[in-house]
Design a protein around this nucleic acid. Structure first.
Lengths: 165, 165
DNA sequence: GTTATTGCAAATGATTTGCACAAGG
DNA sequence: CCTTGTGCAAATCATTTGCAATAAC
């Protein structure tokens, strides 16, 4: 886990008069152990294999805390569950490209894009705070070569693109 | 209702071997009677005052049909329900600015923005199909003048910005 | 007559919450 | 000790679905 994350979290905990608990440590460690997107349920899976028993409720509550502390971002990828993004402190933008074919999610940033939307927002009389762009797209590889490595990986891993409930 | 919508819908119904029912007529008429965003529940409200009794289930099923037919678009404004946008046939983009203060939603389009994201998507090896930009912002008027007409309107109408459940 | 469609009520499923107990400071 | 945090199970709530009755074509 990043030093920035740690100190920001400490600040937040102190400021709010909150307590350090074993469950929070485990959850926070799990959240920032990778920098990939995850769902609450996936996180619960990672965490419940560990020694300390941690309930789903606590996972949800801690996620809320982290979001409130500004250390974690909620994103909507179009399915029925919230996706969390632990990797944005160094990347303030969160633009996502979701492949309709294989479900692959690519995160990218672009200064020009941000400048453009910011100035447009101001022109409309608002001050931009956060922005998210979601591009749904099809996979070039699949269309041109009839197969897509991500599609295969997705199938193997049992993950699939779920439609809205 | 637009002639384009009508004929597109007819096409869709014919192609799918579906049937014309009183409920569908009422719902479709209600959907395209205004060009504002709405939720399933709001639509159900509009429709259930009419003579033909129409269940929530049918409202949801018909909304699904319209989305599938490409006549209606689902958008996510960050709350816990799906918002539907009946006004995009003439405006292919759906970029939304949501005011954190007053909940006002402004829809806008920008060719430059679209070109930019499309080329970025292609550069990443994908073919763009749909894109949505959501900008969360604060209201200039509120900040500068201490009040915002939309905020007041929002309060009066009983609408408010709901957080995720 | 078939087959699609509807209404109802029950099911779903992610997330939230009330409450009694446990544990930080 | 005095709060804050936790687990559990029950509650929420938008949306979906099974099924028997109804209506298109």
């Amino acid at each position: 886990m990043d030093a920035t994350v740690q100190s920001r979290l400490d600040d937040f905990i102190r400021r709010k008069g909150m307590r350090r608990t074993a469950q929070r440590e485990v959850i926070v460690a799990a959240v920032f152990s990778k920098d990939e997107h995850f769902s609450a349920e996936e996180l619960y899976g990672r965490v419940s294999t560990s020694a300390a028993n941690t309930s789903r409720a606590t996972v949800y509550r801690t996620l809320g805390l982290l979001v409130e502390a500004g250390l974690l971002r909620e994103i909507d990828l179009g399915d029925d569950q919230t996706t969390y993004d632990p990797n944005f402190l160094d990347k303030p933008a969160h633009n996502h490209l979701v492949c309709i074919d294989c479900g692959r999610v690519v995160e990218f940033e672009d200064a020009q894009l941000e400048g453009l939307t910011a100035s447009m927002t101001r022109r409309l009389g608002f001050e931009p705070i956060r922005q998210s762009l979601k591009v749904e797209a099809t996979c070039e590889q699949l269309r041109n070569h009839g197969r897509c490595p991500n599609l295969i990986a997705t199938r193997l891993s049992g993950k699939r693109l779920r439609r809205k409930r």
